[in-house]
């Protein structure tokens, strides 16, 4: 899967896993912040995203510091998945 397709898929998962009501997948920009501004997700959402990465892509985030960097936006998540799926 190329990166663009992966980003589109991630947006669909994001909306589905977090039951986001006010955004459609196509409304989420690649660089839109997930936390704070942008989608304004919270700590429970971050746990949901960690579960999503494990279930959908087989990636486990065990270091909280990694999670802070990976879950910045869709672009960062896609980069991390592309990098670690090769391993």
């Amino acid at each position: 899967m190329d990166k663009e397709a992966l980003k589109s898929e991630l947006k669909v998962h994001l909306v589905k896993y977090l039951n986001i009501l006010d955004y459609k997948p196509e409304d989420i920009a690649d660089d839109m912040p997930l936390f704070g501004e942008g989608l304004a997700l919270d700590s429970i959402d971050s746990l949901e995203l960690i579960v999503m990465l494990e279930r959908e892509y087989g990636i486990k985030i065990t270091n909280p510091a990694d999670g802070r960097k990976i879950l910045t936006n869709i672009e960062a998540m896609a980069d991390y998945i592309m990098e670690h799926k090769k391993e």
Binding site: Y17, L47, V51
Partner: peptide
């Protein structure tokens, strides 16, 4: 389904 692996918090709450 996930063999007691990582579970989502929302359903638990």
């Amino acid at each position: 389904d996930y063999d007691e692996g990582t579970l989502t918090p929302t359903n638990f709450i």
